[in-house]
């Protein structure tokens, strides 16, 4: 194991500055700095605030990662960095930092896809991924179903959100309910005291939608339905049952996610579902996926919450896999690509 290459991964696609160190499938260190508190009063991530925070956090976060690992930067064998998708200015801080490391240390650099990294990270916790694997990626910026024959080079999108990302819907509904940003953890918390008594719409599940948008998602209509429901109570002078609304909303989101993920597994003959992204930290999504998948013989793999949200270890994990499979490294001139397609695993 110790002769496997040591890969340093850099993640800056949104509001988390992550530096991870991975050797093979072994997590060595994972240092994180977050600017989430600076965004809270704006109700969402402000790109320029995030970019400034990445610059300030880069060196301290690198220092923490190498101190935890008890190594020096000279011990690193390769650099991996999120090249996209994400916030353009934020991505660029990480990409420039990675190139600076590669240039200084004379080591190869891999510019990798953020979504593929969310899949690859599961190997750090649950071992090698079966091939193919189905991946459900749900976060504040993404909601995608991916068929993954090879996480280092063959990732096929089956569907994605056509409007809001799942995490975005959590944030917006939290706001309607007077809960803080980011909304996911707060809705999860208050929903535990609620009943699933309100039938909110399941986006893109009608018969016609299942033809045209079989594996796509839509959460914008759900968000609006929740807002209308709450406003109707307020207009009638009635109290809003926050816990029930949260539980019912959460159920509507997770029901569609899990239903379509299982359908995708069945139709593609895949027996393993990996769930990643920040929304994968949601307790109802985890429990529903586990129970429904178990019933149909599909293995569910969900990394621990700290590996589901954005982090450097996931980038290092994908980089390590690319090194192990002999994938060619990138040059020093690759761009940060805010809309990098998932079919492009490395820049």
């Amino acid at each position: 194991m110790s002769d496997e290459p040591l890969v340093l991964g850099i993640e800056t696609s949104c509001d988390e500055t992550g530096i991870g160190l991975v050797r093979g499938h072994t997590l060595i260190a994972d240092a994180l700095a977050s600017s989430v508190d600076e965004h809270a009063r704006f109700g969402g991530v402000v790109p320029e605030v995030a970019s400034r925070a990445h610059l300030d956090a880069m060196i301290p976060t690198i220092q923490r990662a190498i101190a935890t690992a008890g190594i020096t930067l000279n011990d690193v064998d390769a650099i991996a960095v999120t090249a996209g998708p994400g916030l353009a200015g934020a991505l660029l801080v990480g990409v420039a930092a990675a190139k600076a490391l590669a240039l200084s240390l004379g080591k190869p650099i891999y510019g990798v896809n953020h979504l593929a990294a969310h899949v690859a990270v599961d190997q750090l916790q649950h071992g090698p991924l079966p091939e193919p694997t189905m991946a459900l990626l749900v976060s504040g910026g993404h909601s995608s179903l991916l068929l993954v024959p090879d996480v280092t080079g063959d990732v096929r999108p089956l569907g994605a959100t056509i409007d809001d990302a799942a995490g975005e819907a959590f944030d917006k509904v939290a706001r309607v309910l007077g809960l803080p940003f980011p909304g996911g953890p707060h809705i999860d918390r208050v929903a535990k005291d609620g009943q699933i008594v309100i039938e909110f719409p399941r986006g893109l599940t009608t018969q016609r939608d299942m033809v045209e948008h079989r594996f796509d998602f839509s959460f914008s209509g759900l968000k609006t339905a929740v807002a209308r429901w709450v406003e109707a109570r307020e207009a009638a002078g009635e109290p809003v049952p926050v816990a029930d609304v949260a539980a019912s909303f959460q159920e509507a989101v997770t029901d569609v996610l899990v239903r379509k993920a299982i359908l995708a597994c069945k139709e593609n003959g895949v027996d393993t579902l990996v769930i990643g992204g920040g929304v994968a930290a949601n307790s109802r999504l985890r429990s529903m996926a586990e129970s429904r998948c178990e019933a149909v013989g599909i293995a569910v793999r969900v990394p621990r919450p700290g590996l589901c949200t954005d982090n450097g270890a996931m980038v290092a994990a994908l980089g390590a896999e690319m090194v192990a499979r002999g994938r060619a490294p990138g040059q020093l001139d690759f761009p940060a690509d805010s809309s990098m397609p998932i079919t492009t695993v490395s820049a």
């Binding site: 970019s51 610059l55 060196i59 660029l92 930092a97 600076a100």
Partner: peptide, 19 residues
């Protein structure tokens, strides 16, 4: 302009740190 400016600054800081 901020975005370009940060490219130079993070490059300088990381090169200095690693060297």
């Amino acid at each position: 302009p901020f975005t370009g400016l940060r490219v130079g600054l993070v490059t300088a800081r990381v090169m200095a740190e690693s060297l």
